[in-house]
């Protein structure tokens, strides 16, 4: 940790003069570029230990940086710097990291400080239920026990949905995701409403995953994207071009399959999250719209 702080401070000093410069130009002169990664952001970005990082977004970023390498015409050293939800934006702004490849939700507030590449992953709030419950949509949950986790935005989505449609859910709240899932498993709740990746992860770890399924309409979406500095138009362009090329060649879908459908290291477990319509849509219509725009639809 101490080392990271010192490193951050030093890089900030060095980068002080090079602020308005694109990470691409900086890479050209210094021969290195720094990727911000997360310790544990699901299959999007996580550590394998030993200072190694992997994940769907990490691999997308590696492709982007390979493209940068081609453009600057010299071998680049790619450095990895772990960031957290609290420090990712400051570290990006002060030049410690040049591109952040984690699980950052693209929202209007953040767009004031940073820029996002086109959305590569859309988190959907979905319904998990027992496969034999006969529940296939949210309307059937009227009057039923619906579990969700205290301290998440899903609670608010449910409330808004109730208000908008005049439905009545009997909400039960778990103190964490595992508790909420236990409520579904033990029959205390008929459904569990949460981010799709969390539902898929819990189902994958259940005693009998076949007993559960994710059903119904998408209750809310949040675009998750790779982050670059606000004034870094050059890197943003290379990034978006790379993403577009990967979508076109089908590499993006292959990457999805690799990280979300197949067993992944280090434990060789599967996330089991099928490519969603919202994500497919985002790939087909490249955009860097914030969450607020998605909500309007």
């Amino acid at each position: 940790m101490k080392k990271q702080i010192v490193l951050a401070a030093m890089t900030a000093l060095v980068a002080g003069g090079a602020f308005a410069q694109s990470a691409v130009d900086k890479a050209k002169s210094s021969g290195s570029i720094t990727m911000g990664v997360r310790e544990s952001s699901g299959a999007l970005s996580y550590t394998l230990g030993d200072g190694k990082f992997a994940g769907f977004h990490v691999e997308v970023c590696q492709r982007i940086l390979a493209e940068v390498e081609k453009q600057v015409g010299r071998k680049l050293e790619v450095k990895y710097q772990a960031v957290t939800s609290q420090n990712r934006i400051p570290l990006l702004q002060n030049g410690t990291v040049d591109i952040e490849c984690g699980s950052t939700t693209n929202n209007a507030t953040r767009q004031k400080d940073v820029a996002f590449l086109n959305t590569t992953y859309v988190e959907e709030v979905r319904i998990a239920t027992k496969a034999n419950s006969g529940i296939t949509n949210i309307a059937q949950l009227n009057g039923k026990n619906v579990a969700t986790t205290t301290g998440t935005t899903s609670v608010q989505h449910l409330r808004k949905h109730e208000r908008a449609t005049g439905m009545d859910f009997k909400e039960v709240f778990g103190k964490d995701h595992a508790d909420s899932f236990l409520m579904l498993e033990t029959g205390r709740a008929d459904a569990f409403v949460m981010d799709g990746s969390i539902l898929a992860g819990n189902i994958a770890l259940a005693k009998n995953p076949a007993e559960f399924r994710i059903v119904g309409e998408v209750l809310n979406v949040e675009p998750i994207a790779i982050m670059v500095r606000k004034d870094d138009a050059a890197l943003k362009k290379i990034g978006n071009d790379t993403i577009a090329a990967m979508v076109k060649s089908g590499d993006m879908a292959k990457l999805w399959d690799k990280w979300f459908m197949q067993p992944i290291p280090p434990k060789n477990t599967k996330v089991g999250l099928a490519l969603s319509e919202s994500t497919k849509n985002a790939w087909a219509n490249p955009n860097d719209k914030p969450m607020e725009e998605y909500a309007k639809k």
């Binding site: 205290t150 301290g151 998440t152 935005t153 609670v155 608010q156 709240f173």
Partner: peptide, 8 residues
């Protein structure tokens, strides 16, 4: 309440 409202 504190947990949920704090988040919201």
């Amino acid at each position: 309440f504190a947990r949920q409202a704090g988040e919201e």
